[in-house]
Write a protein that binds this DNA or RNA. Structure first.
Lengths: 136, 136
DNA sequence: ATAAACCTGTGAGCAGCTCACAGGTCAACA
DNA sequence: TGTTGACCTGTGAGCTGCTCACAGGTTTAT
């Protein structure tokens, strides 16, 4: 299969396939004309990559898992260790996003009662600076 | 003030100040030796930038707000328009993060009862592939 | 033969910083 | 005056995970 075929088969863009290939997650054959040819094993591998991505693993995690899996026997300990780490990060970012969302909501709600004002010598936008001053 | 002084004053890294300077959000004076010197107005400006960042504005948004503020009178309409857009994006990302977190939690919980297994011909990690197969 | 449609790989670009690095500045001391 | 050393500087590159632009190759229809 050439890049477009494998991309269509798994419903992703050719650029994504090329990216994974470029960083070494996929290793297709090269033909005489320079085109890259993907075999069934590469489809399995790509499917695995997509599954792992959807579980929050980074491409470097995936690279590590693939290496482990090809060297030793079971990549599972690595997988368990990595997802624990990524889950913690995700919880943190989720929390951060929550706080950001609250701040943004509060700001827009407060700004509804405030008029537009031109900037002054020490204020660029009284909405933004006023809101921050209020909260800190 | 030189870069380290303004960075320390606002409790951010010199690299961040330099980054904002590089992209044109800050425009310090240049002295004979090539060093950049920041004036009080730059401190106001940087404080504004940090406030806006903490409300979810992108650096490009901020650039737009600063330009508007220096040309016309009130940047407020721009600010109101932009935060609405960013808030929508934030809600979406928050939602995505929520779903990712749920998936990750579910996976780790399910994996507790499953043993490690070596890879097979068409499976790289039965934990990951098994979980995805289950959910799709 | 040739024109158009489609496909290819490579290089660069995006956000928002962060890091590495070679060299400049300046106070303290010999 | 010289010099060591701490600290500071700007610039260029690197990070993640793609996405886009582009010049050129391939294939198909006429």
């Amino acid at each position: 299969m050439r890049v477009k075929q494998i991309a269509d088969a798994l419903d992703i863009s050719v650029d994504t396939v090329r990216y994974y290939t470029r960083i070494g997650l996929l290793v297709p054959n090269k033909s005489h004309n320079g085109y890259k040819y993907y075999r069934p094993a590469d489809v399995t591998r790509l499917r695995f990559i997509l599954s792992a991505r959807s579980l929050g693993f980074s491409v470097n995690d995936i690279k590590e898992i693939l290496v482990t899996s090809s060297q030793t026997n079971a990549p599972c300990p690595t997988v368990r260790r990595l997802i624990e780490k990524r889950l913690k990060e995700t919880e943190q970012r989720y929390q951060d996003m929550h706080e950001l969302r609250e701040r943004m909501r509060l700001a827009t709600s407060e700004w509804q009662n405030k008029p537009d004002q031109p900037p002054t010598a020490d204020t660029i936008c009284h909405l933004i600076e006023g809101f921050t001053a209020l909260k800190s």
